[in-house]
Nucleic acid binder design. Structure first.
Lengths: 150, 150
DNA sequence: TTGAGAATGAGAGTGCGTTCTCAACAAGCC
DNA sequence: GGCTTGTTGAGAACGCACTCTCATTCTCAA
């Protein structure tokens, strides 16, 4: 647990990020648990994963609370939604810069990658056919280290 | 209509591809209309788009027929499903080789790209962290030529 | 031409992610 | 401590993509 991407990213930001809430937002235990779960994750989480992990931190909480807080926190710019092909929406903490995700074919987990983006070269380019590129979505698939070693 | 990607791809394959059905599959007018609609499209289509376009070719047909044929044709290897982030499943004719898609932010259309793949370099590579890459999904976003000129 | 059975169409049904409702609770200002 | 009001939890409700049902129609081998 000491060198997971989550542990590293948490350390890089100085730890107790989960208390950084906009001033007009009440600091409830549920909200803090949701942010803590996102902070400790190695990649973006689905609402159901978040429900599970936040419940492990906080006691128990309702699915409606998770959805409500995701909407509120996204609007406040604290978190961002992550869409992967053929997957339900996931969420991760905002402010992590441009990065992509890796999805393990075996455990179906999604992880944040630190690899430099191979698609950046196309940004702003007009492709043959006249398509003006303004953004991209890249997901890598394969086997995560945990599943390979298992 | 004479130089769309669809027209070009159709011409490249010699035209009346839509009659190439597996021998154990009955050649109904609905089935032919579905394949013709896919053949004439500039990119993958959703079941509803397909319903609309096949109906324009054939008269009218039911949504269940579209879904049933998509499943049958996919199983037969005639078509492939295309998953884009935050979009419902789309379908395109099989055998078009490795390519990616461009989604227009304005008209929300999805187009097939002929651009060489910038991610191929990562195929088979093990990334820092131990992630073994075995595949990828890339979608480019921006403005299509039609919307830019409009 | 005919008959078996594959395919169709319309609409009801299903599954799943997400949102709404409303009474009870709790954060935070006075 | 008391009060205001934002927040919560449980479950019903919703929306949408997709599948099933079944009577009818159509394809195609014999």
């Amino acid at each position: 647990m000491s060198d997971t991407p989550a542990a590293r990213s948490s350390a890089a930001r100085g730890g107790a990020r989960s208390t950084d809430l906009p001033p007009d937002m009440r600091r409830t235990s549920q909200r803090r648990a949701i942010l803590q779960a996102l902070d400790e994750a190695a990649g973006p989480l689905t609402p159901h994963q978040l429900l599970e992990r936040a419940a492990a931190i906080q006691g128990s909480l309702g699915l409606a609370t998770v959805y409500r807080n995701l909407a509120t926190l996204e609007e406040a710019g604290e978190i961002v939604a992550v869409h992967l092909p053929n997957e339900t929406r996931r969420y991760e903490l905002a402010g992590r810069g441009h990065h992509h995700h890796f999805r393990c074919d075996q455990c179906e987990g999604v992880f944040e990658l630190a690899t430099t983006c191979p698609v950046a070269v196309l940004e702003g380019v007009t492709l043959p056919g006249g398509y003006e590129v303004r953004g991209h979505a890249l997901t890598l698939y394969g086997v995560c280290p945990r599943c390979r070693d298992a």
